[in-house]
Design a protein around this nucleic acid. Structure first.
Lengths: 188, 188
DNA sequence: GTCTATAGCTAGATAGAC
DNA sequence: GTCTATCTAGCTATAGAC
């Protein structure tokens, strides 16, 4: 067999950048190919079902990253105290979104033109965020219903601050929101 | 002169629906034409510079609506007490976003593929939200810096709850967020 | 002012050489 | 496994009849 010119992981990184920046319909196969260093036909060899399969692979890749880096710390109550795990998760979230400069892939793929294609990925992804923050909130002594409400609020604040930061081209808004989230959990 | 088949305002309503749902690149001229009841060539007669002019007209139209219905109540301190004006504005915001089911046009047109085309509209639009809520917060006895921070937070919560509501297909999240905003201003 | 018809181009996707 | 070349369908935009 002929060797792969580009590793699977590097392909996914390139695809992610394009889908995040341009959304599903906005991402053209030429851009996707250029971003990976492969030609269009070679991308089809890797993803025989085409663009939708590429976007699904991206969602899976980012989901795995978030599982490891964000949700695992939040959920693993036997590792460190909740305060430490919350701070670690928030640090990783800043990395994930490049301090607010990256669009969220769930949001980029949930425009109405492509929402129905990825509906279940998006719902599953958002529910993971809510469940993980609910757990840490409970460990930090929020009541069960307060914990859930606070977790939903956290997701809303992250998504909203990404939108507003980009719109105003002021990424201190995102960073400030992350700090506010920390305060809310640690000094309720 | 031959009479207009469709009124300017009705055209803008149709264009708005399509741009909101599909973003700038996702909106095709065929869809835009179908949504207005005109043919493509007739749309070009109304908007000689094409799709970008259509999107700018939409931004202007929505901006005028928000000026009248949302910002005017918030800013007109001589009309009613601030509590009443805040409630009126929040009611109009629910109408604007169809109880959370409509995407925000500023967000739909601020994907990176089209962000640079509408940058100043988007910044101006978001700043109007922040200024109007800052004013009402000050009237409700927030300190100057608290008022500004709370206004930014309000915008973040509206945008974020629209994203999360659509992603989870649960529009009670948006309505609940609007209620929380009211509480935050009225019972700080 | 609205329409049909079409230009010119780029999209997503495929065939087949190497 | 990667490539060049190409297909068809859709895109934005325009020309010109009525």
């Amino acid at each position: 067999m002929r060797p792969q010119k580009v590793l699977e992981d590097d392909i996914l990184v390139g695809l992610t950048q394009v889908f995040r920046a341009r959304g599903y319909e906005g991402a053209s196969l030429k851009e996707l190919a250029d971003a990976t260093g492969l030609k269009k036909a070679s991308l089809y060899h890797r993803f025989p079902s085409g663009k939708q399969e590429m976007a699904e692979a991206v969602l899976g890749h980012v989901s795995t990253w978030a599982d490891q880096k964000v949700f695992k710390p939040l959920l693993n109550s036997e590792s460190f105290p909740p305060e430490v795990r919350l701070k670690e998760a928030l640090t990783q979230i800043k990395t994930l979104y490049n301090d607010g400069k990256n669009t969220c892939i769930l949001r980029a793929l949930s425009m109405e033109d492509s929402l129905y294609l990825f509906e279940s990925h998006i719902q599953t992804g958002m529910n993971k965020w809510i469940n993980a923050f609910t757990q840490i909130a409970e460990e930090l002594n929020f009541s069960k219903s307060d914990a859930k409400a606070e977790a939903v609020n956290t997701l809303i604040n992250i998504q909203g601050s990404l939108v507003v930061s980009k719109g105003l081209n002021d990424y201190s808004i995102f960073l400030n929101t992350i700090k506010n989230i920390e305060d809310k959990y640690l000094n309720p």
